[in-house]
């Protein structure tokens, strides 16, 4: 399904999407390995306070108009009772 949608995207749109991603990382000056290391450390810190699935923690770098943003997201478990 995803591949089907992707194939319908023009190469221009694909290029734009890839560039946004690559430039966000270039501008932040963080390589892939460093980012993963940071992700694991952040996940470990969160898990000290909340029981979370460490593998589900995501770290993303986004860039718009030369301002770069680091976004960390993690699903939190529902509190039962």
């Amino acid at each position: 399904m995803w591949n089907f949608l992707r194939n319908r995207q023009s190469s221009r749109e694909v290029a734009k999407g890839r560039l946004h991603l690559v430039l966000a990382h270039d501008r932040a000056g963080i390589e892939g390995g460093k980012l993963q290391e940071m992700r694991r450390e952040i996940a470990a810190v969160i898990s000290k306070y909340v029981p979370i699935d460490i593998e589900a923690v995501e770290v993303q770098i986004e860039s718009k108009s030369r301002a770069t943003e680091l976004r960390v997201s993690s699903p939190l478990p529902a509190r039962n009772g």
């Binding site: 023009s10 190469s11 221009r12 749109e13 290029a15 734009k16 946004h20 430039l23």
Partner: peptide, 12 residues
């Protein structure tokens, strides 16, 4: 749709 436009490049 096979080349980034001038506007695309400015935006990026």
């Amino acid at each position: 749709g096979d080349m980034l436009s001038q506007a695309d490049v400015i935006e990026i």
